[in-house]
Write a protein that binds this DNA or RNA. Structure first.
Length: 862
RNA sequence: GCGGGCGUGAUGGAAUGGUAGACAUACCGGACUUAAAAUCCGGAGGCCCUUGUGCCGUGGGGGUUCGAGUCCCCCCGCCCGCACCA
């Protein structure tokens, strides 16, 4: 029997799809549209198996919706600006653009044999001048709409390389290349005013019903709306101009538990005190830390007593010390707090360290002892007993107490209730070459003015030197010199480029009219938006998705998107990552050397290199180039074909969960597809033999197979709708087993088997499209299976005549009973009570309860 | 540190609060074969020399319920994000 030859079959059908332009998306008012999008890749070099999994998921949805009669848009592009291209340029002397476009070519070449239903005519890369020209136009429009401004912000500065470092380039407080201790430095930067939309972005989350709850929760927490009290401490011994110290607290109810006040090292008061050399030194030490929140929060808590005192707002005779503390963020609230150690673990740790008092404000109940071993931090919704309250009842919830405290303080003129957000404005300035130039011009007489739109794009120069420190655009000999678009005088260009997150914040809208001379085209955007199904990694749950939601609103405000598209992603699915074990050895210098999976031989006890050197097997983590734990899908395609790779990544693991890659899985996927193929050839031969003969009516066994096929239609459809691809695969295994077990000579079986197998071709088509076409064609399917309408289960073939109910006695399974499917509860109860098993168990007694869950279970409670 | 998630046989996993382990991998046995591969058929959570209408079993401990892998509380472990990685 001939083997299924993926190498021949797959290109054949890919050509057939291309010739028929099956995946070309064009506006068509007569068909409902469906826009499915996977987060586009960064062109890092090669596709890895994680991409394969991601795009196969999108492809299953796209092909399924196509079969359901939708006009499907399924585009692909490249998120092509970013640091790796510059790093490659520095390390290998290649131009970032050459490196990027070469990678894009490689990755496209790797993706095409996968047979994805992508409309490649819409492809673009964000580094294409045609794309970033429109991004610059958007920037100018957003500027005019008041969504962009400039302010000073803190960056990581490498004093040796004279460059700004990304957080990931700061390792243990040192620059990754220079090894020099990183400093914090202030630069004037461009900002998007996303925090102006904080409330809108927060409340609109409620409407995102087809988003995972966890992503909605993360976004809510990120925006971090809090209600609290802002008030001013009267200071004692503070420098000129600091008579008041404003603090913000979300727990004003704990004011009488105050132990100290603390300010950020970046607070103006902290800076004003730097004439004291000790304070200057402390602040400088704090500023040696990186800028990431994680680093600030996990660093050892340190403080410095400034000597300044503040008066407690409720008791002017009560003085509190003011510390500078390294864990206070200048960006949140007022950059100053009061510490309540009894009810905040961090404040407690701090108080212990510096010998500050700990005063309980409330307890869990009237009788609870006064304890201060551990900060008592109950949920704000939980009622507690106040022992040092000053407003409201003795027993109330934290929420009630906060409201009462705010009301009291407003009444007494101590402070005001305010709503604050954790969300900060989005700083987009990057002092790098390989990004979208910010289209602004600095003119001595006109100030900062936008470039004339007619002059867009502001192109990146090709001739740059990346091997010297600093921003390449800044030290390019001519690029920055230009004429002021307003007065025509000599002026200089902005040399900062945009954060690459900007590029990915509107690409989904660009796909609706990718070649237009404007960012979008109204009719196209109105027809195709929103993205009906967006698919991507959960690592983008916050930033990318939040920025995109902001951008969609900004694009609506500036006339580039319709009002209906301000929430651009109707449904979101976050797929898990593909992980793999890591393998490492140490070299003579003790440095860790990583090894790829194909360099390593697994043994029973561990792993070794080919030469027998023992290898340390590390945990299975996200595949990354740096850890070398990557698997190249090309190897699998070469050995087994694209369908095998697609089938494998869809089977076994639920798509939202991480999947650990193992080599054994691919071969079993291939075996299964071979089995489907053998059955197809067998059935095709049976049909040929019986051709022209009288058609036998379907007997009981054939009917049973038809029933199995219809159950598969019902279940696979539900599983695809619910993103349970692994279950859909299991259902298809069951159908294969049913077809294989059916006796070919049973009456009517030839056609029943052919029907079941054609159904299988349709149901597995979204996952293994090439094999599906081949099966479909061999068994008399009409046209291309990719164009065939999705099958519909016949309800008459789904009903069973009887069901088997397990019988529980006191919650433990003791037996089962077969009852007619249409028996009502009373009839089932009677049958259960008459069952010998139950009679014996009851031994003449009357059951206390009899629970019948129709179609599921019976529980007899004695 | 903060926010979010996950934890089920040897393995990947299945299970609207209702028969735990579907389906698959690996494994064991059988058929076919000179043999092997491939293929086909079958077995299988653990325990007991009590084989039963038995007991135990979904990271650990507690709770709600007629009934908990699923809901609630506490704990442990792992993973993701933390604003200049994409």
């Amino acid at each position: 029997m001939s083997r299924y030859n993926a190498r021949e079959v797959e290109p054949k059908w890919q050509k057939a799809w291309e010739d028929a332009a099956v995946f070309r998306a064009t506006r068509d008012r007569d068909r409902p549209k469906y826009y499915v999008l996977e987060m586009f890749p960064y062109p890092s070099g090669r596709i890895h198996i994680g991409h394969t999994r991601n795009y196969t998921m999108g492809d299953v949805i796209a092909r399924y919706k196509l079969a359901q009669g939708f006009n499907v848009l399924h585009p692909m592009g490249f998120d092509a600006f970013g640091m790796p291209a510059e790093n490659a340029a520095i390390e290998n002397g290649v131009h970032p653009g050459d490196w990027t476009y070469r990678n894009i070519d490689t990755m496209r070449t790797q993706m095409k044999p996968m047979g994805f239903s992508i409309d490649w005519s819409r492809e673009f890369a964000t580094c294409d001048p045609e794309y970033y020209a429109q991004q610059q136009a958007l920037f100018i429009d957003m500027m005019e709409a008041g969504l962009i401004y400039r302010k000073a912000a803190v960056v990581n500065w490498d004093p040796v390389d004279q460059t700004v470092l990304a957080n990931e380039q700061v390792i243990d407080g040192k620059g990754w290349r220079s090894g020099a201790p990183v400093e914090r430095r202030e630069l004037t930067q461009w900002f998007f005013a996303i925090s102006d939309m904080a409330e809108e972005l927060l409340t609109a989350i409620d409407g995102l019903e087809a988003w995972p709850e966890k992503v909605r929760t993360m976004q809510r927490n990120w925006i971090g709306r809090s209600q609290g009290l802002q008030f001013g401490f009267e200071t004692i011994g503070a420098p000129e101009g600091f008579a008041r110290l404003d603090v913000y607290t979300t727990r004003p109810d704990t004011l009488l538990g105050a132990g100290f006040a603390a300010i950020s090292p970046d607070h103006p008061l902290a800076k004003a005190l730097e004439s004291n050399p000790e304070i200057a030194a402390f602040n400088a030490e704090c500023r040696r830390m990186g800028t990431s929140e994680e680093e600030l929060e996990t660093a050892e808590k340190k403080g410095f007593d400034t000597g300044v005192r503040v008066r407690h707002p409720l008791d002017p005779s009560w003085e509190l010390p003011v510390y500078i503390a390294n864990f206070i963020l200048m960006d949140y609230g007022t950059g100053a707090i009061f510490g309540c150690p009894a009810h905040d673990q961090r404040d407690l740790d701090f108080s212990r360290k510096y010998g500050l008092p700990v005063i309980d404000v409330f307890k869990s109940s009237e009788s609870a002892p006064d304890v201060a071993k551990e900060a008592y931090v109950p949920l704000k919704s939980q009622p507690v007993t106040y022992i040092r309250g000053f407003a409201g009842e003795k027993v109330m919830t934290g929420d009630e107490a906060v409201a009462a405290a705010v009301a009291f303080c407003e009444e007494a003129g101590i402070g005001t209730g305010v709503t604050k957000y954790r969300l900060r404005d989005w700083g987009i300035s990057r002092q790098r070459y390989w990004g979208c130039p910010i289209p602004m011009i600095h003119c001595e007489s006109c100030g900062i003015v936008p470039e004339d739109k007619a002059n867009l794009p502001v192109r990146l120069p090709d001739d740059v030197t990346l091997d010297r420190p600093g921003n390449p655009l800044e030290h390019h000999p001519t690029w920055r010199h230009t004429a002021c678009p307003k007065c025509g005088g000599a002026a200089t260009r902005e040399t900062d480029t945009m954060d690459t997150f900007v590029d990915s914040s509107w690409y989904f809208a660009r796909f609706t009219s990718p070649r237009a001379e404007t960012p979008t085209v109204a009719e196209d955007a109105a027809y195709w938006m929103n993205v009906d199904q967006y698919i991507g990694g959960v690592e983008h749950a916050i930033l990318h998705l939040l920025y995109s939601r902001f951008f969609a609103r900004a694009m609506h405000m500036t006339g580039h998107l319709p009002a209906g598209a301000i929430e651009p992603f109707d449904a979101l699915f976050t797929q898990g990552m593909v992980t793999h074990e890591t393998y490492s050895t140490r070299n003579a210098a003790g440095r860790t050397i990583w090894h790829t999976p194909d360099e390593v031989v697994r043994t029973e006890t561990g792993a070794t290199l080919a030469d027998g050197t023992p290898v340390k097997v590390g945990p299975s983590i996200k595949m990354s180039k740096s850890k070398k734990n990557v698997v190249d899908p090309e190897d699998i395609i070469e050995a087994y074909g694209a369908d095998t790779a697609r089938w494998f990544v869809m089977s076994d693991s639920p798509p939202e969960r991480d999947v650990e890659w193992t080599a054994s899985g691919a071969e079993s996927a291939w075996k299964h597809l071979q089995r489907v193929w053998r059955l197809t050839v067998e059935i095709a031969a049976e049909r040929e033999r019986s051709a022209g003969g009288p058609e036998a009516a379907a007997g009981e066994e054939a009917l049973s197979l038809l029933r199995a096929a219809h159950r598969a239609i019902r279940d696979v459809t539900a599983d695809i709708e619910g993103f349970s691809f692994n279950r859909a695969v299991a259902r298809l295994y069951e159908l294969t087993n049913a077809i294989a077990k059916a006796s070919p000579e049973a009456p009517g079986m030839t056609e029943a088997r052919a029907f079941a197998m054609r159904t299988m071709a349709q149901l597995m088509g979204p996952m293994v499209p090439h094999l599906a076409e081949e099966v479909w064609a061999r068994l008399g399917g009409e046209g291309l299976v990719v164009r065939a309408a999705w099958p519909v289960a016949d309800p008459a073939l789904l009903v069973e005549s009887s069901v088997i109910l397990p019988i529980q006695i006191n919650g433990k399974r003791r037996g089962e009973i077969s009852v007619p499917a249409d028996a009502d509860t009373g009839a089932v109860e009677a049958m259960v009570l008459a069952d010998p098993l139950v009679v014996r168990a009851l031994d003449g007694a009357t059951p206390r309860r009899l629970i019948v869950v129709p179609g599921r279970i019976v529980n007899v409670v004695m």
